[in-house]
Design a protein around this nucleic acid. Structure first.
Lengths: 267, 267
DNA sequence: CGATCTGTTGACACTGCTCAATAGGAGTGG
DNA sequence: CCACTCCTATTGAGCAGTGTCAACAGATCG
């Protein structure tokens, strides 16, 4: 079924193992500096996200060994399983190595609300700090792996490595800005505009990880997209259909191709 | 006009000067530890927010003098004036000493969106860190004063004072959680529920600062509330009227009394 | 005291929600 | 491999909640 509109690059469907770089075409001069042997170090020095978007990306080679004493373990989480649950004691933040997650809060009426989708290189769990408990569930949308980062250890290292401290502060700040953007979107944009924004944002994040920026494989359901965007799953489905009819995208279930990004952006 | 429903306590209308505690009935044993003489120290040790909700609240008396080397100045901002503008280079974060602010981002269509209201003890500007530029305008809703906190100096002190570092991290995290809550509200709640939540939240923040938790003086316009809550000013106005008709609140312009918080909460 | 900003209310249109029926895919076990 | 079930997605019909446009009244300020 999906073959009809299979992506030119089939990378999206390669089963990924954390030991392997997600793609091979990333800048690789970096690997030259990797020191083999020491196991803990290998975790960050060999990480596909090393020079990309992880806490490791801000640490110079001199301090990297110290980071690897903080980030000693990673976890793999099967599709549908919880990375953590709302109410769990906050201990760690998590950097997504591979795969993707959704974060979900339960609201007053007992229904769920998806507050975010998180892909490789992104950090989950920062919202647990202020109460010492995670306010949300984090659920894997596909088989995924994360680095486990004990937050107290990260804080300690931040007191010593200024570049890491600044990185963490920017991480916090970026999440605040992201959520502000969501607020604007939810408050002022039509269903069509919200879905278009969502798709463009998703595509650009995929592209920045070396995937196609036009052929997307959505890992989440219409209901999850709707929850995230503040609309019902029916409206999501209808809006997909309308955008397809207008030849801005082409949809086959979870496989979406953005055929006219400019017009999507101008909606 | 406002006399008709004047608040039992008239504190809301006292013109406030930054040198004076906003109210006199706050816990005051604290003042005993204040050291007179040194000007810089006096700023934090004598601050009305000292034991309340500012960066100072987490620092023990031993480290307080060092904080005062970071927070050396404050600024007063008249109603309608800008604390900073979108695009300004990010240098400082600001702790509100007295008064209140709104933060406003400009959106794609050229219209404004209010992303937050900020009262005494709250911190403004954290969103500027990740890009080194403020993404939003901050405008005083009334004559206000803020402590100017040079962020690089704060970062430096955070590397030395662990309690301060943790406080700052909690501050970031709390802002993320606040915005998640807004997202849920905007995505899933009716206009009536949003306005009720807004009023209850506003009341509880006022109450935690020693003001009445039922008699509110809103400093913002209907349009600003509407922008914040994702509805038009007309809907805000109509919803105020409806809640009044249902005897949950009583409204006279910007003066609002919450007459039945329980039912407001259960909407 | 007039000019301007702010708030209230009405009429009407329209977006998006609810309820409902149906079809398509994915996973499971015989 | 097929039959069965469950989950997901699509589409339609009708309606409710909000937005839009407009008129007017009440505050506020120089």
């Amino acid at each position: 079924m999906f073959k009809a509109i299979a992506t030119r690059e089939s990378t999206t469907d390669i089963p990924r193992h954390p030991e392997l770089p997600i793609r091979d075409d990333r800048p690789s001069g970096s690997m030259a500096t990797a020191l083999a042997g020491e196991r803990a170090m290998a975790q960050c020095t060999h990480c596909p996200q090393r020079h990309h978007a992880c806490v490791a990306s801000c640490v110079d080679d001199h301090s990297l060994p110290r980071l690897t004493t903080v980030v000693q373990t990673w976890r793999s989480v099967r599709r549908g399983e919880y990375l953590f649950r709302a109410g769990d004691a906050f201990q760690n933040v998590y950097a997504v190595r591979s795969g993707s997650f959704k974060t979900v809060v339960m609201q007053w009426n007992g229904r769920d609300h998806v507050t975010g989708f998180h892909h490789a290189g992104e950090t989950i769990g920062l919202d647990g700090i202020c109460t010492n408990h995670h306010p949300s569930d984090a659920v894997a949308l596909e088989d995924s792996t994360v680095c486990v980062i004990p937050f107290h250890a990260l804080e300690a290292l931040c007191r010593e490595v200024r570049s890491l401290q600044q990185y963490v502060h920017r991480l916090f700040s970026a999440e605040i800005v992201r959520e502000s953007g969501m607020m604007v979107m939810l408050a002022d944009m039509s269903a069509e505009q919200r879905l278009a924004s969502f798709l463009l944002n998703f595509a650009s994040r995929m592209q920045s990880h070396g995937y196609s920026g036009t052929d997307l494989r959505l890992r989440m359901t219409r209901a999850e997209i709707g929850s995230y965007l503040g609309m019902t799953l029916e409206t999501v489905s209808r809006t997909f259909s309308r955008l397809q009819q207008d030849r801005l995208i082409s949809v086959k279930g979870k496989q979406v191709t953005l055929t006219d990004k400019d017009r999507l952006d101008r909606l």
